[in-house]
Amino acid sequence: MDTYYHPKDLAKFGEIGEDAPELWQKFSEWYGAVFKEGALSEREKALIALAVAHAVQCPYCIDAYTTASLEKGSTPEQMTEAVHVAAAIRGGASLVHGVQMRNRIEKISM
């Protein structure tokens, strides 16, 4: 079935560099450095990536960071909590815009 997203396309990610190799190299180096152990562990960074992947709804990233989180030792319970954090922020972000709505209501209503 033809769809916009194909799991095998994740392996082609590097092909993005073909038409802008210098930019791809900079991105790759920076990306690699970001996920190295620092003040946060690699496991914690993978969990953050997993949550963000859900927030930006990237299926490639969800596959990649589900695997990475498991490989770095997170449990499904911890990963599910991370997804709830993403969902709560997304839901909260929608809801907090209700303040803007209320401001506007106040401004234009009697």
């Binding site: 152990e37 496991r43 770095k72």
Partner: peptide, 14 residues
Amino acid sequence: NPVGAFLPGSQQAL
């Protein structure tokens, strides 16, 4: 050992 089809992570970190 991993409970599934994935690799184990860093032994030291785990």
